[in-house]
Write a protein that binds this DNA or RNA. Structure first.
Lengths: 146, 146
DNA sequence: CATAATCCTACTGGATCAATAGGATTTGTT
DNA sequence: AACAAATCCTATTGATCCAGTAGGATTATG
């Protein structure tokens, strides 16, 4: 399961993508739109900022804005930032690799082999899942219903 | 990430599948082969037993045996047993479904849409990953190396 | 200078995890 | 009958992480 941090981060980013032409949006405002606790969200936004995913302006009239094109921000990046590895075993992740101590021969491990595939499939889908893509899908869903 | 419980369970099951013709195998024995702490493993084996994945015999000469054909035991089942949902959001899982409280309209949520796909891909792979399949892959890997 | 915003530090209660300890119970062997 | 080998049960522990709150320092704008 995703942590709430990660989920709230995604919600917030989608909100920022949707309101891209409104100029900077305050944490309180995002919190209200996304339906998440304000103070908690503030901490999350700091992380997003440190990662360069958003940029923030202090002071009156300040707020948060996407730091890149919505086509360049994908879910894999966000998940890794908040929840770490996407792979389900330490031995199948690229960015957070670690040996499984109990494993005698990684190269032959059938379990690993499976989880490699799972990881690859997941990463692939999550990389395609940019904010632009998410918004596009929401558009489509809305049309399909009307 | 998988919990250690889940990982150890998989390791133990593969060991049991591999030693299928040796009759019941004790927790201590499995622990030694799989390289996991004995006492911890005991608790895990109880869970596997309660789920009907293995059967256990008490007393001298007792031990644990697979409860079904290795072709019928797959990773999805084991993961669900120890770590719960496979889907990454409460709103995308079948067996452990829950609404996301902050979400206003699930049917339109683009985030959900993505994670549905990720879940489906993962479940599909994990269901194909039976113990028999794992052993077969290990055979292949070993051959490829010699 | 007032106000609205980000940002920083600290804390808390709760939950979960990984593991250990100790022993009760069951079963087969001699 | 006694012993040995096993599962099974209950409890506890220390560590770590999570979700959220609190309070205020800092910064920019009008």
């Amino acid at each position: 399961m995703l942590s709430k941090r990660a989920k709230y981060a995604l919600n917030a980013l989608v909100e920022l993508a949707r309101a891209r032409d409104e100029g900077p949006i305050s944490a309180a405002n995002i919190a209200a739109r996304a339906g998440v606790p304000r103070k908690f969200l503030e901490a999350i936004l700091v992380d997003l900022r440190n990662a360069g995913i958003i940029t923030s302006r202090k002071g009156r009239g300040g707020g948060h804005v996407l730091g890149k094109d919505p086509k360049e921000i994908h879910m894999a990046e966000v998940l890794r930032l908040f929840d770490g590895a996407i792979g389900l075993l330490p031995c199948v992740t690229h960015q957070f690799y670690a040996r499984c101590e109990e494993c005698t021969d990684e190269a032959v491990c059938g379990i690993r082999d499976i989880f490699m595939e799972v990881r690859q499939a997941s990463v692939e889908l999550l990389k395609k899942a940019t904010l632009a893509e998410v918004l596009a899908r929401e558009q489509r869903s809305r049309k399909r219903r009307s």
